[in-house]
Simulated assay, not measured.
Amino acid sequence: MPLPKGNVSFYRYDPFEAVAAVSCALFGVTFLWSTFMTIQKRAWVWIVQLVAIFMEVLGYADRIKSAGDPTNLNLYAVQFCVIILAPVLMAAAIYVVFGRIVVHVVPAQQRTMRLLWVPPRWITPIFVACDVVALVVQLIGAVMVSSTQATDKNAAKKLNTGKNMALAGLAIQIAAFGLFTIVAARFHFTSRQFVTNLQSRYEDAGSGGTVSVKGSPRKINPNWRRLLYAINISCVLVLIRSAFRVVEFAEGTDGAVMRQEWFMYVFDTLPIFLVACSLCFTFPGSYIPHMGFRVPKQPSDARELASQDGSIVGLREV
């Protein structure tokens, strides 16, 4: 794989500062929007998503400078690594929200492997752990690829090693997120069997668009399935982006993807921006009662009532 030499640009095309500026501005809007909603709803666990969006803002802000100085290795490496890694944190945020939805909707005695195909209590830890591994491996690969220069000793070997590391990280992410997407899509249909029981216990809460669940002190948003739609859409968009990055790394610097800038904006920037937007319009804190770092355990009286009729009336810790 040929490397830039001397004062040659690290890009295989002429990067457009204007497109990077528009991307930075759009992600900036979603960052402010998400921050406002996070504070308003006290959805502190959503800070993971805020960090991811801020990384996108930082990445495209740095890309503006990098486009104006394409021979600067530091500018190129920062924007490359940050934009590559931000979606990994978004995936982690999606895992957490889905875990909360399961606890919020499914009766405790029905949260089984048969229903979810993964241990219900370990949905978030298992997938987040895979995400952390994918993040670390991709980080190592991205740093090696973006920081390798033609004058480095064994430059070609370092570049190929970095490419393979990045591909391995992406493979881990796609495998884990692909399984999660199947689980989430399946749950979208199986959750219908709990809706009737849940709705039968709704009582008017009198404010905020929420309802109370009979026998429980908690309030919920009766339109919680909208959030499930947003999660499923986000899963598809993240998978599209991840598949694009696999193709990009597999082709190398001589491939068509790395020689045309529009590929990145269409198959990475746009899907990830739509993920950020969808989770702003359907902000999890507006649908899930508890988006703090810990979820209150199900009260004993609620647990007894749930065991009698199979209806969920409380929450357990994720």
Rank of each mutant, 00 (worst) to 15 (best):
L228M: 04
A184S: 15
I172C: 13
I53A: 07
F244N: 07
E248F: 04
P70W: 04
E248L: 03
R100S: 07
V137W: 03
L239K: 01
L85H: 08
S146Q: 02
L305V: 05
P271C: 09
H188K: 14
R218C: 00
F283N: 06
Q193V: 14
M165H: 10
D69M: 01
V266H: 08
L73K: 11
R100L: 02
T30N: 02
A108T: 03
E304R: 12
A243K: 00
M37G: 00
P4Q: 11
L228T: 02
Y95A: 09
V211H: 11
S191N: 09
V105F: 03
L228R: 03
I39W: 15
L227F: 07
P289L: 03
E203V: 15
N74D: 12
I220L: 03
S286I: 00
T38Y: 06
V128M: 07
V318F: 05
R111A: 03
Q149I: 07
W46T: 06
L270S: 09
Q79T: 12
G208A: 07
G6T: 05
V45A: 07
E203D: 12
V118M: 10
R245Y: 02
A176I: 07
T35I: 02
G206Y: 05
F273H: 11
A166L: 01
H290D: 14
V57A: 07
I53Q: 11
T38N: 03
G99T: 09
D69K: 01
E261M: 08
V29K: 04
D254W: 00
V105R: 05
I140C: 14
Y229M: 06
T253S: 15
T269L: 13
T151M: 04
T38E: 06
T282Y: 13
